[in-house]
Design a protein around this nucleic acid. Structure first.
Lengths: 217, 217, 217, 217
DNA sequence: AATGAATGAGGCTTCATTCAT
DNA sequence: CATGAATGAAGCCTCATTCAT
């Protein structure tokens, strides 16, 4: 009875979503590559399957496009964090695991790092407008909080460092290594992202955090 | 009534230097505030005692002006580092002192931090062209190197971390705290540069470095 | 529970008419508010129960929509004029009555005034295409003509002023008061449409016409 | 001793002024022809000796250009009015003279009329921003005021009509005749600006004002 | 009869830079 | 040594309209 009529609506929606995603991917690359002001809407359009007009049709403008790119980038890093389950690990191992995941994600997503750098040059004015980012990011803190609490209960962690401090320490290390890679290399002659040194820095970060947390304070 | 005959050559040179310095100061603020692409030559000129034409006259263009700004910013931070004399201090105290000086300089010079962020968005292409920067920056590494060597001799420092790693660790911490202040605050609700938390982070950095260097590795 | 079977044809037609009327009302407001070039098809659609696509479906385009709006506006003002019956009045009273009706209609329909202003900026090119407008407007002149004739017969009206001149005089007064209200107020500080001055101007117009028509010429 | 050096500065200024005037003239024509929203910056530029860029250099933007056009148009009509000296004329003749001057100026400057129509479509928002227009326009009222006062003293003018009312009456007549010329012609078949009818309307206006002012009220 | 998605053409504006003296 | 005037190229965005079902 029900003829296999092409599900026009759905197919269109899929097209629409694909086009949007295409634009978002391209825009993410362009914004990461050149920053907000350096990025060109024409260039994004040219690297896309569609036309410049579609950017305005789907996103409204350069700024809104940038904001969706940024929001998606944050969502992804937090999603990656959520995949690690550390509930069953002892505090030391758990904290090391989190450091490693963060390290890996920054390394794998230099564009995310560059977007965040760009956003800070703009004083986080766009992020400030994104209600929802707080919600998306708090799980990361809650997780650390729980691990730190367990560590303190066991008497192995100092107690003058809170979850946000640990997050800053880990993120700062990972972020700087990727974000400042270029000036660092130009000035000190060392490529912080050289694969040959990857394990060294990955371990260094874990040690660093553990050494500090387990020190006497 | 009788005006003193102007000692033409010298006074002109002084004028020239003053104008250049005026432009450089203004440009530093503008580039730090908005990044390279966001900065406007017109805006720099407007905030200056002179005219836009002079920027081209003295510097050649936006890019060259930016490069001089950047070069001066690096020279200043390294000069600050050179003022500390740690030769007479024991390795632990010396390394703590260096961390503090770096911490203080980043805090006091957020514009430097923003310029370096901007430069990294541009893949350090300008810094790469600045041949003198390596020379200006190596003393910082040499100093650390000497301290680390002393510490290792005394058997109190681990030996799998070199001077550049320590520099990265210290700079990364100080840099992130200032550079990512805005997104961090928007997302986690904590102002990393809040004066009330200044001592906490300053001590945290020192502990961090020392805890790690003195751990067993 | 049992929905009444829709009398398809008629109901559809009614739907159609309602949608058309909805669009026309909204478009009238938008064109009056912003002029032809300032009006936005998107905006009209947004203020409507239907979608932009329907505007093209029912009217063909912006220009045709504008023309229907204009035609309807003219039809309405002339219809209002037809409601007054002055055949039984003496010429003086009749002419005063017509002046008042015109005055009232302009005051009550500033949108009509603005549409006509807009149309004149376009050199009445649309009105010129509207073949029916002449027919719809001649009764107004014929009416005046008849009154003037009676007045002249009675020896109370001068004879160097014809019906079209009187119409121009009355319309001009009423039109200017509404159309140029804004510049007049900005420049001379007087709101010509202030309710407190309404009777003054309404009487002034009647006097004006009568004084002139009954003068010796 | 003083060589006839070309007065560079002055010459340049003259060039500048000529270019500005060229743009203003062209813009006045374009804005009058098509209204604010219908006018095209590109079109103005094309009809000019210079380029589109110069419009932004000299005026800042479309809106500012429009405002300067409008301001100049008002200044000109008031300047024309100031050229008539009516102090020595008896009130009746004086008021007739003013009506004629106004009539002539509207006829000679249809662009002024169209600009004012356009401005009213925009609710006089630009005129409202022009401080100074009030000052430029009040002399016209003061002049009328003085004539009306003299007429009343002599017992020949009614006293329920003030200077602003008279100005409205005269302007309204002149303005409508030019502004609504096109719709009027399309609908009633009469060209109000036909030279053959010029004297008729010019006299009609004078009579109208005088008949009304000298009526018993 | 009705509609959501798409779009080519053109709009206004801004930028770093150079010209001409 | 210094400068006011000028500008080509490119930027972001909006418009009325049509496509494809």
């Amino acid at each position: 009875m029900t003829a296999p009529v092409p599900p026009a609506g759905e197919e269109r929606r899929r097209d629409r979503d694909r086009t949007r995603a295409d634009i978002l991917d391209t825009a993410a690359a362009e914004f990461a590559e050149r920053g907000f002001d350096g990025a060109r809407v024409d260039e994004i359009a040219a690297r896309t399957r569609t036309t410049k007009r579609m950017i305005y049709y789907y996103f409204g403008g350069k700024k809104q496009l940038y904001m969706e790119v940024l929001e998606r980038a944050y969502a992804r890093i937090r999603a990656a964090e959520q995949t690690v389950s550390v509930g069953h690990l002892d505090p030391l191992t758990a904290i090391r695991r989190i450091a490693e995941v963060t390290f890996d994600h920054h390394e794998a997503n230099p564009d995310f790092v560059r977007l965040v750098s760009t956003e800070n040059i703009h004083n986080a004015e766009h992020v400030a407008e994104m209600t929802g980012l707080v919600r998306v990011n708090t799980p990361a803190i809650l997780l650390l909080d729980e691990i730190l609490a367990r560590g303190r209960e066991q008497g192995i962690f100092r107690d003058d460092i809170d979850a946000i401090d640990v997050h800053m320490l880990i993120s700062g290390f990972c972020f700087f290594r990727v974000a400042n890679r270029h000036t660092f290399r130009a000035i000190f002659g060392r490529d912080l992202v050289d694969p040959a040194r990857r394990e060294h820095y990955r371990k260094m970060l874990g040690d660093l955090v553990v050494d500090h947390l387990t020190a006497l304070g």
